[in-house]
Structure formats: structure tokens, C-alpha cells
Design a protein around this nucleic acid. Structure first.
Lengths: 255, 255
DNA sequence: TCAAGGCCTGACCCTGCGTCAAGGTCAAGT
DNA sequence: ACTTGACCTTGACGCAGGGTCAGGCCTTGA
């Protein structure tokens, strides 16, 4: 008669695994000797080897009993099942490998490459770090919500920043990132924003926005904007006085 | 301010996952409102998206914090680590696929193909099912303990069974599988076994066994033999009277 | 006779959450 | 004012396949 450790070593498994298989009902509990020790016979070795053979081939323990009792057809069906599952797990990991190889450290994390380029262009053009930071966060949120369309939106932004008037406006706006709500530059900035948007609106009259951003996302982006700029509420207020509401998706106030 | 479910849906995760990340310390716990609800700001959305970006690329949660804070070098090192781990897991599953495709249902499970052929030859030659069963179990144990050498041993066995004298002896032995210890055929069988072994021993004098089976395995196989044949103890006794001890590795008793 | 080592059960640990349970909160409709 | 249903809270168990103690009994060899 064999002790549990002898049994385990004959089958090449740990004692803990044997007890685990008992608990799972895969291997029947043997007789105990007078002191309560499990005592196994040679047939238990064979049973244990069969379990390990299946487990070593990737059969989940929950299916081992089924396969031990299966006829050729059932066995083939179950094997196909398990193989399919293994392929799924392999593909998952292959996708993980692809994605992880594309990841970049730090700021660029979770940003599409176009956005990274855009942000570095902003840096070149002399934008303040805080402005770049909120652009980055906005693009992270946009890319997460609209992975397909982010690149197209990005292209629009990229073009906008090369527009002299808008860039100057945005740069000047950046100088106000940590101003107080009563900063005297705010009203004039609001005027410039309103004027610019007005011109844009005329130019784009009748043209529907091709990349509509969902209202939820707009609200989120506006919230992020407000959180990052202490004087954002005041700016929005001034814009409202000039007939405009919102920021990310700035619109004329309906009369 | 966002509720937990709004936060979760912006980042495309479940509420449960968000709480899990809090518990793991990946996402800081936000302020609570007057009724104890968590209230998030937009920056939490960005933080959560970063976490998911890493997790979706196969980064274990236990390493997410580290990667969020890593500089480019540390990040690259960690990515390499994780990629290595992913490759290991893919290779594991590929091996599983190979092994599972080789597996056969029922009796043949855990047996090398040579053994399956040997057993089916035994069936052809008219051996009793019980004899085949113990052969099968023996080969399962041998293949598990000596995976490399099992095929060579198998070849020897395969040749032996084609030997007229030995086959007859083994077939007659098979007729005694469920006999009683006092069966009158046992002594004559023992004589035949002794005679055969004697001749073998003379023929093989000086030739060392090329495939030595470990003493442990011999003991195990003998135990399996004894368990399966009620009159095995009597047979071994009779063989001892004739100067032989053991079964799997039968040897002349040292004087 | 004593120490080492084997055996027993029970319990917690890992991953990444899913899924109750049992209750408090909120907004809307009646 | 009351109800309903959706949402929030903490706590706990469950999954796979065991690893790793802890505390205590048993056996075996010196």
C-alpha cells in the first residue's frame, strides 16, 4: 500500500494536488489506515496518471471526469471544445502582445499616434504645459469613446492649430490658464472667441458637422475643461453674454 | 460630478471593476457626497482609461501602478517582461493544443501508440480482457515513469508475445486470472514459468538488461499484479519454492 | 526516548473581477 | 405623501489550480 506522497511521486504530482483531486471528486478517496492516513493501491496510480494526462493537455479539471468516462465520439467533441478554448486564449494573448508593443510610456499612454504628434506640435508652437495637458486628457477621453473616429477629428484639430488666427487666440487663452475670474483680459478674449466662432459659423453655415460628438462626451470634455481652468466658469459666463453656450461644442444660444 | 456608473461607462468598464481598482489602490478613492456615494471628476475618467489601456494590453493589475509611473526606460523594460510572460503563456497553450490532439479516448488514454498496438495485438491473439487490462495499467505506469524508454521496452514486449512458447505460457496463465489459490493448475504453471525463465537466463547470461526499471517501479508493477490476480500470492509462493522471486523483474533467489 | 519527517485538516493566498445579499438613496410618477 | 425602479453602499463567496502555512498526531530510525 502506498502513502499519499508515494502515490504523488509515482504520478509526478504534488501531495497537495492529490488532495485537491480528492476534493474535486476526480480521484476517489481511498481507505484510511488505523491512524487516519490515506492508503492507496496501484490502481490509484493509474487513475491519477490519467487525470494528469488530461490536465497536462490543458483539459480543465471541471471537464476531466467527463473525459475519463467519454466514448470516442464524446471525447472527440470535448477535445474540439477545449481546443477551441485554447485557441481563444492564444489569440487573446497575441492581441495583448500587439497592443502592449504599441504602448508608450507616460503622457502618450492611451493616446493614438496622431494625438501624440499633435501634442508635440503644440509644444513646438509654444503652448503652455497646462494647455497641452488638458488637450491630452481630452484626446484620451475622445479616443476611448470614439476609437474609430478619433483620427479624423484629430486631423481637423491639427489643421486648426496651423491657422494663424486661431493659434494666436488659443495661445493667448493659454496665458490665462491660472488667472483669476476677474482678470481684465477675460472680456477681450471672450470677444475674440465670439468673433472667431461667428466667422466660422458663417463659413460653415448649412454644413453639418461630419463627426458629431455625443452629448455625453461633450459634457465630459466641458467638465474636464472647467476643472482644469479656474476661470473657465467666468469665461463661459462672458461667452453666454455674447450669445454663445458651451465650449467643446460651442453653440449659439437659442432665442 | 459623475457617479460611479457614469464613470464606468465613460471608460467602458463595469462598476465592479472600478471598485476593484479602488480596492487595489490603482484608482484613488474620490470624495463622497452627503449620502456616501462616490463622486468623480473628469480626471478620474482619464485615470481609469489609462488603467484600462494597460489592462487591455495584458498588463497584470499588480504591475499597472508601476507602469503608470514609469519613465520610458522602465516602461520598456516592464513591457519586455510582460511580453515574455505572454509568450510563455502562448507557448503553454500551444503545447496543450499539441498534446490534446494526440489524446485518445478511454483505454488508450495515457498510453503511447506502441502500447496501444501491443494491446490490440494481445486482443487478436485471444488474451483475456483482464490480462489486457493489467498490461494496459502497467504500461500506463511505465510510460509515466520512463517516458523516454517506454517505446524501447515496448518493442521487447512486442517481440516476446510473438514467441510461440512464451505466448502459450502467457495465454494459459491468463486462464487462471480468477482462479482460487488452491487451483491445481497453479503448480504446473509455475513449473513452466520456471523452466522458461531458466532457459532465458541461460541465453541471456552475462548480458545486462539494457533498460533497467527502477526498483520502485518494479515494486509498483508487482503490487498492481498482485492486486489484480487473486492467486498471485500463491503463484509467487510456488515460484519461490522453485528458486525465483518477484514477477516484473523475476530473479533467482540469492543463496 | 527523542527528533525528524510524514501525515492530517483547516484556512488563507493568488487573478480579475461576477454575482448575490441586504439595505440606503434618489428621481419620477400617482 | 407614497410607491416604484434604478442606483448606490459594504461585505462576502465563487471561479482554477493548487501553494503555503499552522497546529497537531503518527511513525520511524538512531
Amino acid at each position: 500500500m502506498l502513502t499519499i506522497s508515494q502515490l504523488a511521486s509515482y504520478a509526478g504530482v504534488t501531495v497537495r494536488a492529490v488532495r485537491h483531486y480528492h476534493a474535486k471528486g476526480l480521484l476517489p478517496e481511498p481507505e484510511r489506515d488505523h491512524s487516519g492516513y490515506r492508503r492507496y493501491d496501484a490502481s490509484a496510480v493509474v487513475a491519477l496518471i490519467r487525470i494528469r494526462t488530461l490536465a497536462d493537455a490543458g483539459v480543465p479539471l471541471s471537464r476531466v471526469r467527463e473525459l475519463l468516462a467519454a466514448d470516442a465520439d464524446e471525447f472527440a467533441g470535448a477535445v474540439e471544445d477545449i481546443d477551441r478554448q485554447l485557441r481563444v486564449e492564444i489569440r487573446e494573448r497575441q492581441r495583448h502582445r500587439e497592443r502592449i508593443s504599441q504602448l508608450a510610456a507616460g503622457d502618450s499612454l492611451a493616446l493614438p499616434p496622431e494625438a501624440v504628434a499633435y501634442l508635440s506640435r503644440m509644444r513646438e508652437l509654444g503652448f503652455r504645459q497646462q494647455v497641452i495637458d488638458i488637450e491630452r486628457d481630452s484626446w484620451i477621453m475622445i479616443a476611448a469613446q470614439m476609437p474609430g473616429e478619433a483620427a479624423a477629428l484629430m486631423a481637423i484639430k491639427h489643421a486648426q492649430i496651423e491657422n494663424e488666427t486661431l493659434r494666436k487666440l488659443y495661445l493667448d487663452f493659454g496665458d490665462l490658464v491660472d488667472c483669476l475670474p476677474d482678470d481684465p483680459r477675460l472680456p477681450s478674449l471672450s470677444d475674440r472667441v465670439a468673433t472667431f466662432i461667428e466667422a466660422e459659423a458663417v463659413a460653415a453655415a448649412g454644413v453639418e458637422q461630419e463627426q458629431p460628438i455625443s452629448d455625453d462626451l461633450v459634457a465630459l470634455l466641458d467638465a474636464a475643461f472647467i476643472e482644469s481652468f479656474p476661470c473657465a466658469p467666468r469665461l463661459l459666463e462672458l461667452l453666454q453674454e455674447r450669445g454663445w453656450t458651451g465650449w467643446t461644442n460651442i453653440r449659439r444660444i437659442a432665442q
